[in-house]
Design a protein around this nucleic acid. Sequence first.
DNA 1: TATGAATGAGGGTTCATTCAT
DNA 2: CATGAATGAACCCTCATTCAT
Lengths: 200, 200, 200, 200
Amino acid sequence: MGKADDNKKHKMENLLNTSFELFTSQGINKTSISDIVNKAGVAKGTFYLYFKDKYDIRNRLISHKSSQLFMQAYNALQETGINDFEGRLIFIMDYVLDELEANKGLLAFIYKDLSWAVFKKALTTPMSSDDVDFGKVYEDMLEESGMKFTNPEVMLFMIIELVGSTGYSSIMYNDPVSLKDLKPHLETSVRSIIKQFTVQ
Amino acid sequence: MGKADDNKKHKMENLLNTSFELFTSQGINKTSISDIVNKAGVAKGTFYLYFKDKYDIRNRLISHKSSQLFMQAYNALQETGINDFEGRLIFIMDYVLDELEANKGLLAFIYKDLSWAVFKKALTTPMSSDDVDFGKVYEDMLEESGMKFTNPEVMLFMIIELVGSTGYSSIMYNDPVSLKDLKPHLETSVRSIIKQFTVQ
Amino acid sequence: MGKADDNKKHKMENLLNTSFELFTSQGINKTSISDIVNKAGVAKGTFYLYFKDKYDIRNRLISHKSSQLFMQAYNALQETGINDFEGRLIFIMDYVLDELEANKGLLAFIYKDLSWAVFKKALTTPMSSDDVDFGKVYEDMLEESGMKFTNPEVMLFMIIELVGSTGYSSIMYNDPVSLKDLKPHLETSVRSIIKQFTVQ
Amino acid sequence: MGKADDNKKHKMENLLNTSFELFTSQGINKTSISDIVNKAGVAKGTFYLYFKDKYDIRNRLISHKSSQLFMQAYNALQETGINDFEGRLIFIMDYVLDELEANKGLLAFIYKDLSWAVFKKALTTPMSSDDVDFGKVYEDMLEESGMKFTNPEVMLFMIIELVGSTGYSSIMYNDPVSLKDLKPHLETSVRSIIKQFTVQ
DNA sequence: TATGAATGAGGGTTCATTCAT
DNA sequence: CATGAATGAACCCTCATTCAT
């Protein structure tokens, strides 16, 4: 039975990986179930054994990939000696932006139809056992900072929306400036936003 | 021939208006060409005499409606006595956000697939003769302010992206806070951003 | 425009005829829309211009074919000199049964899923302008008979159900007797039923 | 081995009962093998160990349920003092019609696709050891009646087809009359049919 | 016996686009 | 200019049946 379960898990991951490749390379709208199963080498019906529809698989992937991305950033952060809260947030921002610039397919995929609501869910409800709850990580960072904030959730919300939407435009269209040129402005703004929510 | 032109213009506007109603009420993906021509009372082929496809008509509408919205805000601004640059931008922001909250269909429509690139184009290249070039209006506002900015375009970009993306989440999902609760935070942040770009 | 309308009518009749052939030869369940359009030589989408679905076309065909069959019987009746009501009904019964025996596909088709309700509708609401309202014809026959009946509708109902269901079994399966052997019994029973509803 | 056989029998009856519930509640066409095995709590493959397909199970159920129904009627008849043949047949007819009116799901199920051939088989070839051969019962009734009939099989055939088809319409659609209103007419007709086959 | 994951043909349906009128 | 009937590829999804375990 271990074998059957392995096989099953293997097939599911196969479908997830294949879908991700297609979604990021040609977009979700232009990807049909047929495309996915053909590339994955399984029958059409098999898809429906594992997923409700295309959007089911998309949501799972967004959660998984976002979580993964943030945890990579967090792990990299641990290996630096950065201790101040502002510096740590900005390190994560930089890391994520660089990662997304290097992988525009991923950016297009997770940004499309992405609302704060979906995002929050993605970050706080780990998909697989390997995923980590970034909500908890954020709470830890807040605590370790020794600082006090009036509304940490809204603070994070504003930072993510600002960084996300401006970063998207810079990375995807180089408009109105490149990511490299945008970053200093973003850093300043993020520090302002943090200050604005800090309780002295 | 004036009559023929009028007729032509009339038909085109009819299609534009009908499309807008359908796009904002049921979304662009769920709106088919058939829906549009049925509601507009013209033949299917006629649609293709005026527009390339659904996305052609969408882009024109986004430009037109955005421009309209900003000009409404600007006109309302003129009737106030607000003179300081920061106050004027914030008035426009408030006005636009309130308008979008009152008309969520419009918000969903112009926000979906909206990038800064499209937006800038919308604001600076008037669709019809009635539309105004908001790019010019912005320049005027800068000049009248008597202030100097290091990079006014990026400044506007950051403000619009921040306000747009956080406003969208608040208005559409009340998440993480309502628009009413978001506004004070936004105002503070926008003032910070303006300061950050101001040359003393 | 006459030409276009002709063409349209022609295409619709083409689909009706093709469907009928397939329904009667292989059954409605085994007939797919694909089968129909392939045989008719039109595109799949065309089918949906004329009919809602397979069952829409079936209902129209049942109405049309039933009506046709009864009118054939009635026309044949006119050419005989039969004058008494019982004799006329029995002539029609014989005619219809013979016709159905000669065309078992038609029998299977119109009998399947056929309820009195559908049947009554079929006989009383002509599909096309060529079809005749058999309900009216029956009324005329009643009137011309000079007889009085307590409940002519129930009388017809019982006769049709008896003749239809026994005839079906005899024709399709020769069970428990052939149509030829069944007929004398049926004739006797039908006369009894008429008598039972006759007001002296 | 008795235990294994019991288990086997148990599983088969489980599938039969589950299928019957689904067939009568939602119709056979809308019932899939998946529905059946899910509700029965067995694996899909198991179904095919006991039955060829959905229609195999249906035929067995029709036989079993019809037989059951007629035997119920017959047993009820025994407890009345009714002695004359006509009265006994009419009692059975009434009993069966009432039962079917109270259980329209059952009526829809056994009537659909029901031909005299299937019916006769159902009545004369007991499915399980509990089922009784109604064919024999009918023979007994004929004998006990002390009467002589020209063709008792055709007589029964005509009665069953008449009662079945008119009863179906009355019960399911109240068209053209309710069962209550239909019954007196049916009784009269059945008596006529019996008379017509009686040898003086 | 029993399982249930996998199959894949085939179903119905939609809709952007064309083109003869 | 305007029409709208016709197209047909493409879509999603179901489900009876098989077979390795």
